[in-house]
Design a protein around this nucleic acid. Sequence first.
DNA 1: CTGAAAGCGCTTACAG
DNA 2: CTGAAAGCGCTTACAG
Lengths: 359, 359
Amino acid sequence: MKSINIKDIARLAGVGVSTVSRVINQHPDVKAETRENILKIIEEYNYIPNNSARNLKRTETDDVGILIKGLYNPFFAQMLGSIENILSQNGYGLLSHYNGDNSASQLDSLRSNEHMRDIDIAYEFIMEKKLCGLICLGGDFNDVTEKDLLRLGVPLIVASTNMDESINKNLYSSVAIDNERAAFDAVTYLCDEGHRHIGIITTGAGDLSIGTARTRGYMNALSNAGISKNELYFDMGAYTFETAYEAMNRLLDKAPELTAVFAISDIMAIGASKAILDRGLKIPEDISVIGFDDIDYAAFFNPTLTTVRQPVREIAISTGELMVGLLESVENHKHVQFPTKLMIRDSSCSNRENGGENK
Amino acid sequence: MKSINIKDIARLAGVGVSTVSRVINQHPDVKAETRENILKIIEEYNYIPNNSARNLKRTETDDVGILIKGLYNPFFAQMLGSIENILSQNGYGLLSHYNGDNSASQLDSLRSNEHMRDIDIAYEFIMEKKLCGLICLGGDFNDVTEKDLLRLGVPLIVASTNMDESINKNLYSSVAIDNERAAFDAVTYLCDEGHRHIGIITTGAGDLSIGTARTRGYMNALSNAGISKNELYFDMGAYTFETAYEAMNRLLDKAPELTAVFAISDIMAIGASKAILDRGLKIPEDISVIGFDDIDYAAFFNPTLTTVRQPVREIAISTGELMVGLLESVENHKHVQFPTKLMIRDSSCSNRENGGENK
DNA sequence: CTGAAAGCGCTTACAG
DNA sequence: CTGAAAGCGCTTACAG
């Protein structure tokens, strides 16, 4: 099953391949008549140019890549649209590439068992599609070197994740919220409400960027409130209802004195809430719950969930505009941090002036 | 910024490019010593072979493609893992490609304004990656011709969507549930409970496969129960909380006599529920709600949601196994339909023997 | 406005 | 076990 190629089209149209190529690539200098005829034949034979060949030959495109890590982040799909709009208004295309947790690159066979780093996948993506810029939504960039960054050869913006702290900040841009600060504020709110026994459900070693920052915020808030750290108040799950449900059950077994729990994502907060309710405990009377993200679901949940909202739309717009600025060399790499907002919904958090010793 | 290529590696290793290629592709006949040396250099220079060149040259791979339409379907991510397992156990790789609603192919510039059909994106994907088989999760295949299918040249399985009815069933496989039947059962349940004024929130013209089938099921259930169709009882939204919320508000304005509503997805059912509750109406006392999908959220929602569950895991396994069978020519194209299960949760549906005239 | 030719970085017979 | 060479399907100077 040999498929039709540019040579066939050229032959059918009675022209050279260069002319067909010009039509495909919308070069202006082709006689209108010739162009029409070629387009007709392309249509008739349903010809689709081979992207591998194009990408191999092309030196650079006007396409920006967006590498999305983790299908489960509900904001990424939303950000995609905003970013695409801004880029296309400025004459750039957007090519997205999803990079699930279990997803292997076409290459994985090479590196024996070891997983490819996100920065390598980024490099491969840029090379393969000849991108002129790259945006990473999420991903783990904690083991990146400056050499890795230089190798990319095009502007890089990381959004909603962190680059290794040791890296020269002039080598990339970032757009994000201050996860540590936001978590600090959320947990401080609980402390201010009188809670002294506050648990946390966080993620494991696989999530070095977001999870650790939020956990750090939790710890700082406690120490700032003069509460000492208690190992029993920590438990872990993935970003799923299920694992958070189990984590909450473990917490309740280990530390029945808890009067509040901070989950580092809403999904986990909802899983935790379910576990609490399933034990016959009441929210917020027995245990207060606070989440992070303000997904649609948070306000629909019963009880509605107190949580941290990030300005998703603004972050996306800022990311798109920064990329355009970088590509047109009117901007240098910079690091933008957006403020978050604590969405207080009383049905999930209550005042506990007595320190929650009423259980 | 010229990146290192196979020729450079060959030169550095003092061998021919063919030998490097053999190492990359894990051909057995390379002396162990030579192989080790080449691998060391590849590692040292962080060489990553150019996929465009590989794909251009390669005639066929052992990779199966999976084309995923619609990021929002919560089951797709889940199915991916099961399918990948089965394929990899049989020596095949899985390459995924997400094809959002707004996503343009690299090619879109060619076809003036008109959007590429999903079948064309499938063809392009197969050609570009030289796939040996393709699975489509979702997508619209209502305007497909037999010629389109023959052109693909590799086995095709469509899952969770429908192919145009007129197409020869020997040209492709399908794995799905009977959406019409499942919707029929759900709405019949409402009729049996005594409801006579049952609204529906469905999707618009952009969703020809799933939405219309479920809407047909709704209509058949009504006519089967001797209830005549009422145009006022129809409204539309996308697969979002928000649009379903608005749709429900319009329904309540147009048809205050409604005692039940069927939403064709849980997301929409939850949006509708919120609209109902926001008006001070009670679920299920004033209005019963029934959804479709049984997403995690359905059981966590308050009130818990009556909905239709599909056997996601079984569907994924069946899809993977069927693909392996087709590739090894031990199976012919077939069409598998899985049963669904109505998850009755009383908190969202109540008996209405009097026909709901109590409002 | 158009065509012939080189070359992008690989893989794959082919010859040794 | 190894290398030289052809060719995958395009794009891009270059020459006209």
